[in-house]
Amino acid sequence: MQRVVPDGCSDLVVFDDGEAIFVGPALDVALVPLPPGAHLRGLRLRTEALGPVLRLPAHELAGATVPVSEVLPERLARLAVEQVWEGVLPEPLRKSSADPRVTHAVRRLWSGGTTVAAVAEELGVADRHLRRLFLDHTGMTPKAVHRVGRFQRFLYAADTTRVSLADLAADAGFADQAHLAREVRALAGLPPRDLLRERRGD
């Protein structure tokens, strides 16, 4: 059983039996059963690339797990699946025109130390306009991207350092350890200590 936690990205996943799925960005944990010996390959789309690469409003794919043929025309879907399995960047997914404002905003919100309002002001756009841009490009709101980025900062720090949960919470940008505990349980389905034990294989 694989625990898949929110990371702000989308994935095209190809299984060794030929099945191919597209997984949109999520704010919920997924527990995915994989049979022993299963072999799969995938392509990950960065947060801001989803809408531009697929040429679809990204919010339509938020939280979705669908056959690749539902997000690409059949011929392009077959080609993309073949090329992912071969380890080649699929031709149908190479061209994109991500809005540089969204790319900048995603990076700023992901790295922490700022707010959605501050980023909107930096870009000279209204909060509502930034929200529309994010929904079209990423499938998530700016606040959701900020939230997932903070969670991922916690995971990275926990995987690479050995400090207390209180220090991890502060460094990642949580208000306190209780805030960390609530968010980790909501996004990963486990309390922080249990999640870290699972990730370390304890």
Rank of each mutant, 00 (worst) to 15 (best):
A120E: 07
L130S: 09
M140L: 15
G124V: 11
A120R: 07
A126I: 02
R153K: 08
D127F: 07
L130Q: 09
M140Y: 13
E121M: 06
M140E: 07
A166M: 07
L135M: 13
A144V: 00
L168I: 07
A144G: 03
R162V: 11
D159G: 12
D167K: 05
Q152V: 08
T138F: 07
T160L: 09
R162M: 04
R162K: 08
D136I: 01
K143C: 01
A126H: 12
T161S: 14
A144T: 02
F154T: 02
R128N: 09
R132A: 14
G124S: 11
F154Q: 01
R153F: 06
L133D: 04
L168W: 06
F154S: 02
E122A: 13
D167Q: 15
L165A: 05
T138A: 13
R150Q: 11
R132S: 15
A169H: 03
L155F: 02
A158T: 05
R150P: 10
R162A: 13
V125M: 09
V125C: 10
Q152F: 00
D127A: 12
R132D: 15
T138C: 15
L135S: 04
H137N: 06
G149Y: 00
H129T: 14
H129F: 12
A170W: 07
L123E: 10
E121C: 03
H146T: 01
G149K: 00
D167I: 04
D167F: 04
R147V: 04
S164Y: 06
M140V: 02
L123H: 10
G124R: 12
A157W: 06
A144D: 15
G124A: 12
V163W: 00
